[in-house]
Design a binder for these strands. Structure first.
Lengths: 241, 241
DNA sequence: CGACGATGTTTGTTATAACAAACAACAAAA
DNA sequence: TTTTGTTGTTTGTTATAACAAACATCGTCG
């Protein structure tokens, strides 16, 4: 114990700048979260603690913490024997998810429309909107998805209600793995109505009803398209490869 | 290892009925959850792993899992050094919570009104309603809270959307510790309009707008009363002791 | 007397080992 | 051939110990 204290003091002496060390389970959590959102895990895959620990190069303890978190958030399902599995998304679950998302994101858009906002914030959203359109034209779908996500949450952040944003983020995580491989085909289809620009315009105009209507329409249409991709068992699967 | 296998077979021989063994961290999670909902933890209390483990009579490992879950759900806040603390509730956070609750619970009531239900389900809800009224008259406020909670979630379950119920439950957990010591004084005040019976009546009649309106009114009025109890710093504290 | 620094204590984090239940593979008997 | 019992393996669960950072305590020096 003496040695520990001495070594500690020595470290404080030599290391001048203090680096806040983030826990390993936080890093593991972030990596798993991103992998899920990007759809790098096939639905139905069982994530075993030891294999994940080997991938991360740590023991199973931090991995266990990360998985526990994800299961608590509903991002990972817990299968038999409390194993964590990447959830499938059936047509029914997608329908439920759509109802909750419409309620939450519609409300967030409404609240955003009832507030006044900085010009800088609005300008940045407009820029992102034009970026998204050029990304669609260039078929850069993977980076489009990133901008698409940031645009939506940029609007929700304007509600000024962090709890609302946090809850919405949770819902996105649940449908994340599926969205990643079905949206790309979808966005190229809708050249007709761009609910994104309409929603932003309504928010700027202070039109709460319009803002909610456009966001709900955006979510509903995407969900309707996704539902049409379900197979005979009601499961949503990757179309080609 | 041979001994282990043999002992296992012996156990299977003698123990005829299989008892599904629930993990320790699940029990710890449930106990902490109930304690939070019942308001047995003072807001601001730091929950240390070792003290909780000593209370439960286990090691810190299952307790850590339970606390990790609760923090991931947003039920417990994580203070400095990743310690888990029972969250305070400010007037602003209560306001945010009210917005989200109105959106979610209003939508659940609406969905419930759009469906047909068994007579047994409706009768049970009516019985609970009368039980609640007699509990108020008898000033049995602690058991009233339990029935009140079950009545609300009975309605939300009628929406047929488990995800919605789950998300609402999460919101209740966040305001649980505060509700427990401010609602009792509130319920005795409102002998005027009983939004509960009105909401149930609307659901039975298939009146979606009415169901949503009554539930939202119920939530809003309670939140308004709670907000009036906040002190000068915006914090909600236990009134007397 | 007050400020600074050393030291013990508390507490979350991580690794490791032992354990138990479920699964898989294989061999033996009907 | 099919079924059943056995055995090895996988995997989540739990306890324990070592570790590190923050906090608290107290003595010493200005």
């Amino acid at each position: 114990m003496r040695d520990v204290a001495r070594r500690d003091t020595e470290r404080c002496m030599t290391a001048l700048k203090r680096i806040e060390r983030e826990p390993l389970w936080d890093l593991a959590h972030a990596q798993l979260r991103d992998a899920l959102l990007a759809g790098r895990f096939e639905p139905g895959t069982v994530l075993t603690l030891r294999s994940l620990a080997e991938s991360f190069g740590t023991s199973i303890t931090p991995v266990r913490d990360a998985v526990t978190r994800l299961v608590a958030q509903g991002v990972l399902q817990q299968g038999p024997r409390n194993s964590a599995i990447v959830p499938h998304l059936s047509r029914g679950e997608l329908s439920d998810l759509t109802v909750v998302r419409c309620a939450l994101e519609g409300r967030a858009s409404r609240e955003a429309a009832l507030r006044r906002h900085d010009d800088a914030t609005l300008r940045k959203l407009k820029e992102r909107l034009s970026t998204m359109q050029s990304l669609i034209a260039a078929r850069k779908l993977e980076s489009y998805l990133e901008h698409h996500r940031k645009f939506h949450f940029g609007i929700y952040a304007m509600s000024g209600i962090p709890l609302l944003v946090e809850t919405i983020e949770n819902m996105w995580l649940r449908c994340g793995p599926v969205l990643s491989f079905v949206i790309p085909e979808y966005v190229v289809l809708l050249k007709g109505w761009d609910h994104h620009t309409a929603a932003l315009k309504a928010i700027i105009a202070g039109d709460a009803d319009g803002a909610e209507r456009e966001i709900v329409a955006d979510i509903s249409e995407a969900a309707h398209y996704l539902a049409s991709l379900a197979d005979s068992t009601g499961q949503l699967r990757r179309p080609s490869g």
